[in-house]
């Protein structure tokens, strides 16, 4: 799905639809799909294992617009070239990818939209 970066954001939904925040929450806490809690913590009292490599996701929806959250997920390198956060929706610049993940983005367009929708509900 093509997308257009304007400044620090991608304004248009990758699917043309708003995402589903319930599904987005499931992706964020999942160790197989989102992997977010490997690095981040957040307002997830039931999740015992959370990371300390990155800022808490609490309040992300207050700090950032939908468009900013979308670019952060799609390709955080545009915001910080040295970021350790994976680019969830671009393929370029990665090497030696395991065959089972080759030529696949970490999340698909619908999943990105679900996560964006969920993050925007995280208000302090």
């Amino acid at each position: 799905m093509p997308f257009k970066v304007e400044g620090d954001a991608i304004q248009r939904s990758l699917t043309g639809q708003p995402g589903d925040p319930t599904e987005g929450r499931r992706i964020v806490i999942s160790r197989q799909t989102g992997l977010c809690l490997l690095c981040h913590s957040g307002p997830f009292p039931d999740e015992r294992f959370q990371g300390t490599l990155a800022p808490s996701l609490a309040g992300a929806g207050t700090r950032w617009t939908l468009g900013q959250l979308r670019l952060r997920l799609v390709d955080g390198r545009r915001l910080n070239p040295d970021t350790i956060m994976p680019s969830y929706y671009v393929l370029d610049g990665v090497v030696r990818v395991a065959p089972s993940f080759a030529a696949k983005t970490i999340l698909n367009a619908a999943q990105i939209e679900d996560v964006v929708a969920f993050l925007s509900t995280l208000r302090d």
Partner: peptide
């Protein structure tokens, strides 16, 4: 020191 893999770490 080289990044590799889908997660680019």
């Amino acid at each position: 020191n080289e990044r590799m893999g889908q997660l680019n770490l």
